[in-house]
Amino acid sequence: MANKYAAKGVTFGYGSPLVTVASVKSISGPKLSAEQIDVTTHDSSGSYREFVQSFKDSGEVTLNLVYDPSDTTQGNSTGLLSLFNSGAVTAMAISYPMTSPVKKLTFTGIVIGYEWGNAEISSALEATVTVKVSGAVTLA
Protein backbone atom coordinates (compact mmCIF):
# COMPACT_ATOMS: atom_id res chain seq x y z
CA MET A 1 0.00 0.00 0.00
CA ALA A 2 1.28 3.47 -0.89
CA ASN A 3 2.36 5.89 1.83
CA LYS A 4 0.46 9.13 2.31
CA TYR A 5 1.98 12.36 3.61
CA ALA A 6 0.79 15.73 4.83
CA ALA A 7 2.48 18.57 2.92
CA LYS A 8 3.54 20.34 6.16
CA GLY A 9 7.27 21.00 6.17
CA VAL A 10 7.89 21.06 2.41
CA THR A 11 10.56 23.64 1.60
CA PHE A 12 11.85 25.54 -1.43
CA GLY A 13 15.49 26.49 -1.72
CA TYR A 14 17.90 28.09 -4.17
CA GLY A 15 21.64 28.43 -4.69
CA SER A 16 24.64 26.34 -3.80
CA PRO A 17 24.68 25.63 -0.94
CA LEU A 18 20.90 25.54 -0.84
CA VAL A 19 19.27 28.49 0.97
CA THR A 20 15.75 27.75 2.24
CA VAL A 21 13.18 30.48 1.49
CA ALA A 22 11.37 31.67 4.62
CA SER A 23 7.61 31.90 5.15
CA VAL A 24 6.43 29.83 2.18
CA LYS A 25 2.67 29.20 2.36
CA SER A 26 2.35 27.03 -0.73
CA ILE A 27 4.36 25.59 -3.60
CA SER A 28 2.80 24.49 -6.88
CA GLY A 29 4.50 22.84 -9.81
CA PRO A 30 6.52 21.98 -11.65
CA LYS A 31 4.18 20.66 -14.32
CA LEU A 32 5.99 18.51 -16.86
CA SER A 33 4.72 18.40 -20.43
CA ALA A 34 5.91 17.39 -23.87
CA GLU A 35 5.23 18.56 -27.38
CA GLN A 36 3.96 15.96 -29.77
CA ILE A 37 4.54 15.55 -33.48
CA ASP A 38 1.84 14.13 -35.72
CA VAL A 39 3.41 11.28 -37.72
CA THR A 40 0.15 10.02 -39.24
CA THR A 41 0.51 8.71 -42.77
CA HIS A 42 -1.89 7.46 -45.40
CA ASP A 43 -1.05 3.90 -44.40
CA SER A 44 -1.52 4.39 -40.62
CA SER A 45 -3.65 1.52 -39.35
CA GLY A 46 -7.18 1.86 -38.04
CA SER A 47 -7.76 5.44 -39.21
CA TYR A 48 -6.17 6.79 -36.03
CA ARG A 49 -3.61 9.55 -35.84
CA GLU A 50 -0.15 8.60 -34.59
CA PHE A 51 2.20 10.76 -32.54
CA VAL A 52 5.75 10.80 -31.22
CA GLN A 53 7.05 12.85 -28.36
CA SER A 54 9.20 15.89 -29.10
CA PHE A 55 10.71 18.53 -26.79
CA LYS A 56 9.85 18.42 -23.11
CA ASP A 57 9.07 21.41 -20.88
CA SER A 58 9.45 21.33 -17.10
CA GLY A 59 7.01 24.19 -16.64
CA GLU A 60 6.92 26.62 -13.75
CA VAL A 61 6.96 26.62 -9.97
CA THR A 62 4.81 29.13 -8.08
CA LEU A 63 5.55 30.12 -4.49
CA ASN A 64 3.04 31.94 -2.30
CA LEU A 65 4.88 33.71 0.52
CA VAL A 66 3.97 35.57 3.66
CA TYR A 67 5.99 38.61 2.60
CA ASP A 68 8.66 39.91 4.96
CA PRO A 69 10.49 42.94 3.50
CA SER A 70 13.42 42.38 5.86
CA ASP A 71 13.91 38.68 5.09
CA THR A 72 17.11 38.05 3.12
CA THR A 73 15.69 35.00 1.29
CA GLN A 74 12.86 37.07 -0.18
CA GLY A 75 14.61 40.37 -0.68
CA ASN A 76 16.52 42.50 -3.13
CA SER A 77 20.12 41.98 -2.01
CA THR A 78 20.45 38.17 -1.92
CA GLY A 79 16.94 36.71 -2.16
CA LEU A 80 14.35 35.83 -4.75
CA LEU A 81 13.87 39.46 -5.78
CA SER A 82 17.62 39.66 -6.40
CA LEU A 83 17.37 36.55 -8.62
CA PHE A 84 14.53 38.20 -10.54
CA ASN A 85 16.54 41.39 -11.05
CA SER A 86 19.69 39.54 -12.17
CA GLY A 87 17.99 36.94 -14.37
CA ALA A 88 20.51 34.39 -13.10
CA VAL A 89 19.93 30.70 -13.86
CA THR A 90 20.15 29.15 -10.40
CA ALA A 91 20.10 25.70 -8.80
CA MET A 92 16.79 25.15 -6.98
CA ALA A 93 15.08 22.40 -5.03
CA ILE A 94 11.78 21.44 -3.45
CA SER A 95 12.42 19.21 -0.42
CA TYR A 96 10.01 16.72 1.10
CA PRO A 97 11.41 16.18 4.62
CA MET A 98 8.58 13.91 5.73
CA THR A 99 9.84 11.09 3.51
CA SER A 100 12.57 8.72 4.60
CA PRO A 101 15.03 9.19 3.11
CA VAL A 102 14.27 12.86 2.31
CA LYS A 103 13.27 13.29 -1.34
CA LYS A 104 14.06 16.39 -3.40
CA LEU A 105 13.00 17.72 -6.76
CA THR A 106 16.10 19.47 -8.10
CA PHE A 107 16.34 21.72 -11.14
CA THR A 108 17.75 24.97 -12.45
CA GLY A 109 15.46 27.91 -12.94
CA ILE A 110 15.03 31.62 -13.40
CA VAL A 111 12.70 33.86 -11.40
CA ILE A 112 10.32 35.29 -14.01
CA GLY A 113 7.73 36.90 -11.75
CA TYR A 114 7.56 38.62 -8.36
CA GLU A 115 4.17 40.00 -7.39
CA TRP A 116 3.23 41.68 -4.15
CA GLY A 117 -0.28 40.81 -3.04
CA ASN A 118 -3.05 43.07 -1.83
CA ALA A 119 -2.43 44.73 1.52
CA GLU A 120 -5.85 43.97 2.95
CA ILE A 121 -6.74 45.09 6.43
CA SER A 122 -7.60 41.59 7.66
CA SER A 123 -4.85 39.52 6.04
CA ALA A 124 -1.11 38.98 5.97
CA LEU A 125 1.18 40.72 3.49
CA GLU A 126 1.84 38.22 0.72
CA ALA A 127 3.94 37.86 -2.40
CA THR A 128 3.81 35.39 -5.29
CA VAL A 129 7.01 34.31 -6.99
CA THR A 130 7.11 32.46 -10.31
CA VAL A 131 10.09 30.38 -11.39
CA LYS A 132 10.57 29.04 -14.94
CA VAL A 133 12.32 25.69 -14.81
CA SER A 134 15.20 25.43 -17.28
CA GLY A 135 16.01 21.87 -18.30
CA ALA A 136 15.03 18.63 -16.58
CA VAL A 137 13.66 18.06 -13.09
CA THR A 138 15.26 15.27 -11.07
CA LEU A 139 13.61 13.41 -8.19
CA ALA A 140 16.17 11.86 -5.86
Score class of each variant (00 low, 15 high):
residue 1 M to L: 10
residue 5 Y to S: 11
residue 7 A to D: 01
residue 10 V to C: 03
residue 13 G to P: 10
residue 13 G to V: 04
residue 14 Y to F: 10
residue 18 L to N: 06
residue 18 L to T: 09
residue 20 T to Q: 12
residue 21 V to E: 07
residue 28 S to E: 12
residue 28 S to P: 03
residue 29 G to V: 07
residue 32 L to A: 09
residue 32 L to I: 12
residue 38 D to W: 11
residue 38 D to H: 12
residue 39 V to L: 07
residue 41 T to A: 08
residue 47 S to G: 15
residue 47 S to Y: 03
residue 48 Y to T: 12
residue 50 E to A: 13
residue 52 V to T: 09
residue 57 D to P: 07
residue 60 E to S: 12
residue 66 V to D: 05
residue 68 D to C: 08
residue 70 S to C: 06
residue 71 D to Y: 06
residue 72 T to L: 02
residue 74 Q to I: 09
residue 75 G to A: 01
residue 75 G to F: 08
residue 76 N to A: 14
residue 81 L to I: 02
residue 84 F to S: 04
residue 85 N to A: 13
residue 87 G to W: 00
residue 89 V to Y: 03
residue 91 A to Q: 10
residue 91 A to E: 15
residue 95 S to P: 05
residue 98 M to P: 08
residue 99 T to D: 01
residue 99 T to S: 11
residue 99 T to E: 14
residue 101 P to F: 05
residue 101 P to V: 03
residue 102 V to F: 02
residue 102 V to R: 08
residue 106 T to R: 13
residue 107 F to E: 03
residue 109 G to N: 13
residue 109 G to S: 13
residue 111 V to W: 12
residue 112 I to T: 15
residue 112 I to S: 15
residue 112 I to N: 13
residue 113 G to Y: 10
residue 114 Y to T: 01
residue 114 Y to K: 01
residue 114 Y to W: 03
residue 115 E to D: 14
residue 118 N to E: 15
residue 118 N to W: 00
residue 119 A to H: 06
residue 121 I to R: 09
residue 122 S to A: 07
residue 122 S to P: 04
residue 124 A to P: 01
residue 126 E to D: 06
residue 128 T to G: 02
residue 132 K to H: 03
residue 135 G to Q: 00
residue 137 V to E: 00
residue 138 T to E: 11
